[in-house]
Every structure is written in structure tokens, then in C-alpha cells.
């Protein structure tokens, strides 16, 4: 997904000279084609994220469209005030591409685990947050970023992620994608968890429970009317996210349920990471499994909800 995303940045740079790329200190060879063809618009600037967000804001004020990539933790929480004040308050079109959103860096421990990024980015007025499901969706997403006039945070998954997006789906910022219609229970996912939702829904179908799957590639803004229309078809929802239980997808859906009497009563289960620092190393998958962000637990939670009438 990262490779696709950065390749899309390169393509955007080919078509629009306002596009500049900024890295902090990322993998050798990253975007060599961009660097070779547009050296005046390629910047590898060192481990100085606070400065870089400000610099990007200054570039954007002068008409540039800066895309920046580094590890997600370092361009969200490390330089949070710069993202909030420089990018957010000035409402400049900078694009922050965070590698390893969620549990991708589980082997490297809590310093690298970006599991509160959605919560903190969401609190910034003017910010837009994308968490695409796969590389194919990324290809649709990136062109939409070019002329979008606000700051954007793009949460990258690990890469090699199962492709669930369909060629027939269009990409509209804020518009959920209804992957599977059901009638009993609705799974809502974002990023790679929409794939977990689809697998769980298929298992539930065989068990006689009709599960729908809704994918949110955009976590802010959200077309709430569209979301409510889908949610109103169900009486139970399970959210799945590779994020802390605080402030992410589950919280967003909780807020929407609480604020909209038309869809109440609604049962809700939230599959997310607990409110604690990572306690064990492991892979992305084992970390998510341990937290119950898994096909098995999604199925189990759905059955529990349904059996409780």
C-alpha cells in the first residue's frame, strides 16, 4: 500500500508541478524516480518532524502541495501541535502519509505503534483522515487528494493487504462503501479491518446470521446521512478497528448512535485495542488477535449480540 501510495505521489508530480515530496529519513531508494526527474521538488530533510510540518505549511501557503511520508507515530503525535496549529489552524493543503498505522510495527514495540493516531487527528478542525483498505483503493484515493483544499492524514496499512475494493466502487471523500448488504447485524470497518469484517460476515451467513459490511475509508469527514441510512437498516453493529478503543471508529459510531434517536435502540460491540500500552511483542496479526480484532472474535461477538435478542 505504501509503495502504491508513493507511486501515486510520483504520478501526481508528473501531472502537476505544485506537488512536492518531503521525507524525514525514510528508506533508501524511496521515490528515486521522483528524485531523479524532479530534484527541485524532492526533499529528504532529516529527523525533524516538528520543523517539517511547519515547512510544509509554508510551502503550501505559496501554492505548493506537499506530500510527506514517514512512520505514522512520528508525524502524528511527535509533532502534534505543528499538525494542529500549522496545518489545521492555517487550513493548508499538506498531505501527511503515515506508514504503519495500527499494529504494523508491533515487533518494534510501543514507541512505533500508531494506535491513537485517528483519535488525535480527528480532534483537529479542518483535518481529513483516510484509512484505505488496500492498494487498489489507494489508487482511487490519491487523485482525490490533489485539489482538495484541506490538510489530509493518510493512514497506511502494512502492505500486501488483501484487496477487497471493487473496480465498480467510486471514491468519494467521506462516503462509506457498502460492501455487503445484510439484515441482522452490520460490521463497520476501516483500513484492513473491513477485510476481517467481510470474512466474518461470510462465516455468519453460513450460520444463518445475515451480516452487512460497511467500509469507512474516510474517518473525517463522514457523510453522516449516508452512514445513518445504512445503520438504520440494522439493530446491531460491530465496529472493527486497528486502533485504541478511545477516540477511533468505535467511538465515532458510538457518538453517532447516541446523537441520532432514529436509529435507537442499537446494540453495539466495539472490537479495538484496549486502553493500555502494548504489553507484548509479536506481529501485526498476533497483536490484533490478542485484542480480539479478528475474524473469530467478530463472529463470536456477532453471535453473542444476536443470541441476546
Amino acid at each position: 500500500m505504501r509503495k502504491t501510495c508513493l507511486n501515486e505521489v510520483y504520478k501526481l508530480a508528473q501531472q502537476d508541478e505544485r506537488v512536492v515530496f518531503i521525507g524525514s529519513d525514510i528508506g533508501q531508494g524511496t521515490l528515486d524516480n521522483f528524485k531523479t526527474e524532479y530534484p527541485e521538488r524532492f526533499f529528504m530533510e532529516g529527523v525533524s518532524e516538528a520543523h517539517l510540518i511547519g515547512m510544509m505549511t509554508g510551502l503550501a501557503m505559496c501554492g505548493k502541495i506537499p506530500y510527506m511520508n514517514t512512520i505514522a507515530t512520528f508525524i502524528t503525535r511527535r509533532c502534534y501541535e505543528q499538525v494542529l496549529l500549522d496545518a489545521g489552524l492555517h487550513n493548508q493543503p499538506i498531505r501527511i502519509i503515515g506508514s504503519g498505522g495500527g499494529c504494523v510495527y508491533a515487533p518494534l514495540g510501543p514507541t512505533h505503534l500508531a494506535v491513537e493516531d485517528i483519535a488525535i487527528m480527528r480532534a483537529i478542525p479542518n483535518m481529513t483522515i483516510f484509512a484505505p483498505s488496500d492498494a487498489e483503493e489507494m489508487k482511487k484515493l490519491m487523485p482525490a487528494t490533489l485539489d482538495y483544499d484541506r490538510p489530509i492524514y493518510i493512514r497506511l496499512a502494512k502492505g500486501g493487504d488483501t484487496v477487497i475494493s471493487r473496480s465498480s466502487d467510486s471514491f468519494e471523500i467521506g462516503e462509506p462503501i457498502y460492501y455487503k448488504q445484510g439484515s441482522d447485524i452490520l460490521f463497520i470497518g476501516t483500513g484492513i479491518t473491513s477485510n476481517i469484517a467481510l470474512e466474518a460476515a461470510a462465516i455468519l451467513d453460513e450460520a444463518g446470521i445475515s451480516a452487512g459490511v460497511l467500509h469507512l475509508h474516510t474517518l473525517k469527514p463522514i457523510n453522516q446521512a449516508s452512514l445513518l441510512e445504512t445503520m438504520s437498516q440494522y439493530k446491531a453493529i460491530v465496529t472493527l478497528e486497528e486502533h485504541s478503543i478511545i477516540g477511533g471508529l468505535g467511538a465515532i459510531i458510538s457518538e453517532i448512535i447516541a446523537e441520532n434517536i432514529s436509529i435507537q435502540p442499537m446494540k453495539l460491540a466495539k472490537l479495538a485495542l484496549p486502553d493500555q500500552f502494548q504489553e507484548e511483542y509479536g506481529s501485526q496479526n498476533t497483536t490484533m488477535d490478542a485484542a480480539g480484532i479478528s475474524v473469530a472474535n467478530a463472529v463470536a461477538q456477532a453471535k453473542i449480540i444476536m443470541s441476546n435478542g
Partner: peptide
């Protein structure tokens, strides 16, 4: 955006120079 002539919102320290570097860099580009 609120005060004509003001080029950046400042108040929290350490923000103006990074923005200025971006503006100066844009001029060079």
C-alpha cells in the same frame, strides 16, 4: 486569515521559523 497583513498564526513558540523556511524554500523553487 483573520488579520490582513498577518502571514502566520503564532503564539505557541517555535512555529514561525519553520513556516518561514517553507515560504523561503517555495521562493527558491
Amino acid at each position: 486569515g483573520r488579520v490582513p497583513g498577518v502571514e502566520a498564526s503564532t503564539g505557541s513558540l517555535g512555529h514561525g521559523l519553520p513556516i518561514a523556511v517553507g515560504i523561503a524554500l517555495a521562493a527558491k523553487i
